[in-house]
Every structure is written in structure tokens, then in C-alpha cells.
Write a protein that binds this DNA or RNA. Sequence first.
DNA 1: CTATGAACACATTGTTCATAT
DNA 2: ATATGAACAATGTGTTCATAG
Lengths: 122, 122
Amino acid sequence: MKKMPRGEGKFLIKQRAFIKLFMIKFVEENRLYGMQAMDELKAAFKQFGYEPNHSEIYRSLHELIDDGILKRHKKLQEGAKYKEVVIYQFDDYEKAKLYKKQVKTDLDRSINLLRKAVEDVF
Amino acid sequence: MKKMPRGEGKFLIKQRAFIKLFMIKFVEENRLYGMQAMDELKAAFKQFGYEPNHSEIYRSLHELIDDGILKRHKKLQEGAKYKEVVIYQFDDYEKAKLYKKQVKTDLDRSINLLRKAVEDVF
DNA sequence: CTATGAACACATTGTTCATAT
DNA sequence: ATATGAACAATGTGTTCATAG
């Protein structure tokens, strides 16, 4: 595949961007490790038949690190389990806000595209 | 990949279903061959940055034939060109209406899923 | 050139396996 | 068992090539 000069020809927003947006939200709310985020996402969107799997969650978090938006550190899990979990913080919050804005644009575009389809056909 | 027991775990509607819906609409309107359909779709959704390519159009039409929804026959193109084009008609219109209904459900689901994301995050 | 179709290549994402606690 | 991560595999779709007029 050549390159898409800049989102040209694209259909709907990608799952990856969708999840990354929620990961940023979870970090903003200061409570997060991967499995918790997945469980919350699953609970929130189960009503729409959407249940993201753990690999997509981790891929999204890793990509946010590569983007320079998040950074990770380890922490002992609460309770008597003495198990490390990976916690995320912002590495560059300005970048995070910019990314959110971009995803918002893509979400709105996708919604409007689908709404037009419904209007045109039904 | 195993099988998705029935649309479980899925994110948004697929481009293929989206295009098949419009192909059915074009056949209902009784004017269609592949390239025309593509041009109309491109014109309609260019405003959202979405421009489907010809392969997806043909794949969608072929799949509708495999589904038993459309059938094809050839026709001489209008004008002095004596070139054959492929025209589609319904093979089973009840199936077509059922499929439209299913896609409508998936469109609505997708819109609502995205709307919830916007509400939750912004 | 336009229209149709198939082949190929890459991108996305689901499933499975590995490792540590 | 739970949490994280990587490897593997299937699907979806964009690009290129082929063929016919």
C-alpha cells in the first residue's frame, strides 16, 4: 500500500484511536492500569456489543508512550497481593490534549458520515 | 481467528456492509453499473473525506450475488460506444430488504456507540 | 481511454502463547 | 489465579496488474 497522503479516502475512525482516547481519559482521572481500563471500557460499551480485548488495550497504551504522550512506572498493587501493575502518567499533556482534539474531529466526522448514510438510504 | 459467535466484540460497521447497502439502494433506483455507483458514492461522501475505491465496489457487488440478493446481466452501454457494462437486478428482493434492515441496525448501533464516546469523554 | 475483475500487499485487529507474580 | 506483553494468524481493504472493449 502506498501512503494515505493524510487520512484521504478513509472510512470510519479506527478502534486504536478510539481506545487511545479513553486511555487518555483514564489517566486524566488518575486511576488506571491496563486491566482496569479494559474492564471499564467493556462495561461501558457492552450495551453496543463492543468488548475490546486486552491486546488492543496494551497496544494502545504502548502507542501512546511511543507518541510521547504517556510514560509508565510500576507500582505495587493495592491490597495484600504484592503484585506489580503498570501505571501511566502524562509525559506531555499538551500533546495529549492535541491528540484528543484530533480524535474528536474524527469521531464527529464518523458520526456525520454514518448519519448521512441513514438519511440517504432510509 | 476463531469465530465471532455472532457479531460479539465488534467495533463499528464494516465498509463492506456500508457499500452493499448503497448498492442495493442503487439497484432499487434502477440505474446502476459499478463505476457509476462509485462515482456517486464518492461525490456523496467526499465532504467527509471518504472516497471508496473501485475494488471495494466490485467486491461488494460480487458478495451480494453470492448472498443471493442480486443477479447480473450485461447490457450495451448507451451511446455510440458499443461497450458492455454489467447491470444488476434483484435476485431475491425479500433478502435484500432483510439485509437492509440488518445494516440499518448496525448503522444505528455504530452511531450510538460513537455518540456515547463523545459524551463520555467530552 | 473506460469498465470489470483478480492478484497482491499491507494494515488492523483477534487469538494464542509466554512470563512473572 | 491476574496482569502484562509478544507472537502468530485471520480479516479487511488499498494498490496494482490484467483483460476486454
